[in-house]
């Protein structure tokens, strides 16, 4: 499978990349790890005339941790996220979730920036970033701006990123409390049938704060605000967890595809959400 022809550019800084994006408009696209983009180019689902490789731009690579503030450059690969010990100490859920993405070869090239900017509801990082209440930093012809992960996704492959904007970095605070990322997939290397992330704090059996987000259960990631409101301040028991799970499932809106009909996906969603809640609470 061979994609249609394009011109290739490898700028060494962001302003050069942004000006190429501006010059070529809709005909241009950036490439990070290429592991979402190249497959769709091969299928000719997209027609790109100018391909801008971001791998020469050092300023958007690497992981920076100062106290509890974590900032990850867009071009940081999934394997770098997995292998970074300091990141594991500060936000172990990143490793847990990243190890459930694709396979070793894909994780060697796939980047966090490509994963969150792609806008594919099947990608795991967008839900994870909503879970962590992360902030995306973007740069375009009109300068830089920040967008919350919870405000970024508008629909399948539609995000609030402008055509000439490049995602620079992703930042969030080190989460505290128990955590879990549960993903049901047909095989390693498959996208989620349903996945759920939970971060929770419990004091004297009472939930003092929580965050819950879902992957591939709607055309965008789902931040379960209703379920969060329902659990915070309450004493944890199985009945409450069942009601919280149901509230999350009700907020989901999956579509039928090769991974199953809607009823099945909602059923699986219920299972991964409950599992994630329980495991996160055990880890508090």
């Amino acid at each position: 499978m061979i994609p249609s022809a394009f011109k290739f550019y490898k700028p060494d800084n962001i302003s050069k990349a942004v000006s190429l994006m501006k010059d070529f408009g809709e005909e241009a696209r950036v490439i990070a790890g290429g592991h979402s983009l190249i497959p769709i180019m091969k299928q000719r689902l997209t027609d790109i005339k100018h391909l801008i490789d971001l791998s020469g731009i050092d300023e958007i690579k690497g992981i920076n941790i100062t106290g509890d503030e974590i900032s990850i450059g867009a071009m940081t690969t999934q394997v770098e996220l997995i292998n970074n010990e300091e990141l594991f100490q500060k936000a172990p859920i990143i490793r847990e979730a990243s190890l459930q993405i694709a396979d070793p070869q894909v994780r060697n090239l796939g980047t966090i920036g490509g994963n969150v900017a792609n806008g594919d509801p099947a990608n795991d990082m967008p839900g994870l970033m909503q879970l962590l209440d992360a902030t995306y930093k973007l740069s375009g012809t009109n300068g830089s701006r920040e967008v919350k992960a919870r405000d970024f996704y508008e629909g399948a492959y539609f995000t609030s990123r402008e055509d000439d904007e490049i995602l620079l970095s992703i930042s969030f605070e080190s989460p505290s409390g128990g955590y879990a990322y549960e993903k049901q997939k047909r095989k390693i290397g498959d996208y989620a049938t349903a996945a759920a992330g939970v971060i929770i704090k419990v004091e004297n059996n009472k939930c003092s704060s929580a965050s819950i987000a879902l992957t591939n259960l709607s055309d965008t990631p789902v931040y379960c605000n209703k379920a969060v409101d329902m659990i915070v301040g309450k004493e944890i028991d199985n009945d409450l967890l069942d009601r919280v799970t149901k509230t999350c499932v009700d907020q989901s809106d999956p579509v039928a595809d090769q991974r199953g009909p809607v009823e099945f996906k909602k059923y699986v969603a219920g299972i991964v959400i409950k599992k994630a809640l329980k495991r996160a609470i055990e880890r508090v």
């Binding site: 290739f8 490898k10 490439i31 290429g34 592991h35 190249i38 497959p39 391909l51 490789d53 791998s55 394997v79 070793p104 070869q105 894909v106 060697n108 090239l109």
Partner: peptide
């Protein structure tokens, strides 16, 4: 030094 799937890399990326 990393395993990659060479069907998912454009040749100029390997410069």
């Amino acid at each position: 030094g990393k395993s990659v799937k060479s069907c998912t890399v454009f040749t100029p990326q390997a410069e």
